[in-house]
């Protein structure tokens, strides 16, 4: 029985080594190491009633993260592959349009930097219109119009409805 299942598995999934997964290992090690380092800087606490102390959890988690990174690093060259998320709107066969993702990240960073000086009304418009354009919509005017409508509507809605003042930026006083 086991041999048949092995054969079926090998026929079903040709072994490919997905080296990009080392990125995951790197992240795991980085987070784990940080946790361990940070935990070691803590005071022990009241050891009598709290034998665990504040250090235990982060230390344990950090150590396990590094261990997992090692296990993963060993499993990768043996063909271990995580099945990429096949959501409903995803075309799993296409290689991955990372340029689009990079541009979106760029727009996001711009918004982060600009939201306080320029205000949400402008930054939100930039975010929506920019994202829509990057994702393929070529109706530039329409994108900006919709973005501005959303940004302004949400600005007022949050202020009047939820009592949350979003940054007004340079339009402070006008809005």
């Amino acid at each position: 029985m086991t041999t048949t299942s092995e054969k079926t598995q090998e026929n079903a999934a040709p072994r490919r080594v997905d080296k990009a997964q080392y990125l995951v290992c790197a992240v795991l090690v980085a987070v784990g190491a940080f946790l361990i380092y940070d935990a070691l800087t803590l005071d022990a606490g009241f050891a009598k009633v709290d034998p665990v102390g504040p250090k235990f959890f982060p230390l344990a988690i950090g150590v396990i993260l590094v261990v997992l990174a090692v296990i993963l690093a060993i499993a990768i060259p043996r063909g271990s592959v995580g099945e990429a998320d096949a959501g409903e709107d995803v075309d799993p066969d296409s290689p991955g349009d990372w340029r689009t993702v990079g541009l979106l990240v760029g727009v996001f960073v711009a918004v982060i930097l600009l939201v306080e000086p320029l205000g949400w009304a402008i930054a939100g418009t930039l975010l929506f219109a920019g994202a829509a354009t990057i994702l393929g919509s070529r109706h530039y005017i329409r994108n900006i119009v919709i973005g501005a409508a959303l940004a302004l509507a949400s600005f007022y809605a949050f202020y009047a409805g939820l009592g949350i003042p979003l940054p007004a930026g340079i339009l402070d006083g006008i809005l």
Binding site: W120, F128, A131, A132, S137, N143, L150
Partner: peptide, 13 residues
């Protein structure tokens, strides 16, 4: 494009 731009917008909001 509008769907996902919208998601990013509301997420940031």
């Amino acid at each position: 494009p509008y769907l996902y731009a919208g998601i990013l917008f509301f997420a940031a909001l």
